[in-house]
Design a protein around this nucleic acid. Sequence first.
DNA 1: CCTACCGATCGGTAGG
DNA 2: CCTACCGATCGGTAGG
Lengths: 200, 200
Amino acid sequence: MSKPIGKVKDATPREAINSAAIRLFGAMGYNGTTMRDIAQEVGILAGSLYAHIDSKESLLAEIVQTGIEPYLAILRSLDGVALSPTEKLRAAIVTHVKVVAANPERTFVVFHEWRFLKEPYRAKVVKMRRRYGDGFTKIVADGVACGEFSSELVLRVSVFGILGALNWIPEWFSPDGPSSADEIGNQLADALIGGLRAPR
Amino acid sequence: MSKPIGKVKDATPREAINSAAIRLFGAMGYNGTTMRDIAQEVGILAGSLYAHIDSKESLLAEIVQTGIEPYLAILRSLDGVALSPTEKLRAAIVTHVKVVAANPERTFVVFHEWRFLKEPYRAKVVKMRRRYGDGFTKIVADGVACGEFSSELVLRVSVFGILGALNWIPEWFSPDGPSSADEIGNQLADALIGGLRAPR
DNA sequence: CCTACCGATCGGTAGG
DNA sequence: CCTACCGATCGGTAGG
């Protein structure tokens, strides 16, 4: 009945190292994971890792960059498609969740550990993240006032949606930004409560 | 014109250590910060820190626990108050954002670094986090189908709200959970797109 | 709060 | 992929 937790499809040593690193970076953080931890998970000695990778940081960089790719692919697949902004936004959200679900651990590393990359890598990742945010911005901007709306309340997801939006605030909030905390709070409340309204 | 970045109100050595640790844990992560980093920021030597704190981990624990407190206070202040669920949810969201704005760095540490705490501390923090989530759940459950709805679109905040909800998914998603990725995606889309609907 | 230091462990390498 | 090891740095302590 218990699922065979698997490195099942780690065909190459490099793949085994990648998936071990994803697991460990996710569970203990990049800086909390040692090369010896990774080596043990793979079943080799620490020094032997360097036959397959250049450095710990390049390993993280590869995981993060490859991990963002499918998200950027979502936007590419929707670009120029004949859908209303509402339909596009729904498609982007639904597909995003599917990509998360296909590999939650990798995604966790992508969104939490990228910031420990140093400069050659960091700039590249920052650009990719910005491109993703810009894609959503464009869809929303395109559809400021069109389409239909229907809300089916589902408690669990709604609450996680609210908490996600709230807990993400420290990632983008700036005291020097254009909106006060009060304005932001009310705008978020509008956006999030809107989704909870029962259809009449 | 440049603001005086200040440890201005670090009256005691312990307060200076706390605020230095908050800055550094936020910028470089708990495991990426050394006691020597903190000591340097405070202006003393590493060993001298231990005249004021017990350990690196207890320092993080104190920051995280104290940092969650004002969030739990939001729920306490709303408990038993005569407001509709819609009003309560708005109040909770708005106040949450104000607490973030009052100390974004501390909040960043609270939501990102708590997971590096080990067991005596960790259980306590997990319980506090759960209590906060439960508070929102109760408000939402209380108001499943009542109140009015009005949406004022503000691009920036809406997009960050959407990305926050999405980027938070890996924190709670489980392949063994009650909903498929597709169900979750559509429920999130309902909730988030609802807030973008132009009022008619 | 400093001097002086500790055992442990880190990322990484040379040379097979 | 292993043996054997490196310089650096880690969290923390003893004794003032």
